[in-house]
Design a protein around this nucleic acid. Sequence first.
DNA 1: ATACAAGCTCAAGTTGACTTTAAGTCAAGC
DNA 2: GCTTGACTTAAAGTCAACTTGAGCTTGTAT
Lengths: 146, 146
Amino acid sequence: MDIAEVAKASGLPASTLRFYEEKGLIQSTGRNGLRRLFRANVIERLALISLGRSAGFSLDEIGEMFTAEGLDINRALLLAKADELDRTIEELTSMRDGLRHAAVCKAPSHFECPKFLRLLRVAGKNRIRQPNKLKENKLKLGVQKK
Amino acid sequence: MDIAEVAKASGLPASTLRFYEEKGLIQSTGRNGLRRLFRANVIERLALISLGRSAGFSLDEIGEMFTAEGLDINRALLLAKADELDRTIEELTSMRDGLRHAAVCKAPSHFECPKFLRLLRVAGKNRIRQPNKLKENKLKLGVQKK
DNA sequence: ATACAAGCTCAAGTTGACTTTAAGTCAAGC
DNA sequence: GCTTGACTTAAAGTCAACTTGAGCTTGTAT
């Protein structure tokens, strides 16, 4: 496959594919002139990378996961990330409840509302970065049937 | 209060306070020579800002929330953010379950495991940026009693 | 044979939320 | 009078994950 096909199949721009290759996350298997050639299984790779990103792994972490040939998934790392997600989920949940309460709370100042004060205590940690303009993400992974 | 006191009370470095002032998120009420003076209620402001950040608001969004004097919270914005949190929570939950499953799954390739494939479909959207090195966040908000 | 769209490389730019640095001001203490 | 330390400013740096741009090369269609 050439880069355009991979881009289309994965939903990722060619620039990202080059970037991922440079980072060692994917490999091209040769060139046709200048042009990169990819094997079809790169799509699966990219799906895994996308998945990892969604789960909060950094590209570096993802890179450490697949060694040499094929994808060797580090189970401990997975479980650790799952635990981290648990904590995040809990915090986001309090946050969501707090926001809903704040929207209807009648206390004259939020600082006089006990729920709001509890919310303040819950916050503090767990700052969320604004995601990278995820305009429309159109990952078409129907994990192709050969 | 001078900037050092505010820094201590809020847990935020002075550089961040200057940055927030420049962004219009907090105000200093005057100067003693060159030195900024803050009113005590700036601590509450900072607590709100921290809260907003934790809930996923950008600084710009937070800035739009408190108009002029005092904090005027935009209820619609709050509810919208709460809904957004709901979606995020759902996705993170699938993600977490998927990770836990992947860690124990016996299928020869993850691509042969139906749960894993479902996980792949759930992902796609909702990329999480690595949080801003949140070494130790030590917000000491005991919301001071006058 | 020639045009041209699509690739290529390498370097620099973008974003958001800060942090760091360099250079300067100032009150207090020795 | 001089040092020290806490503060000031403006500008530059950081981080991750990409994106963009300039300028060059190529396979393929006319």
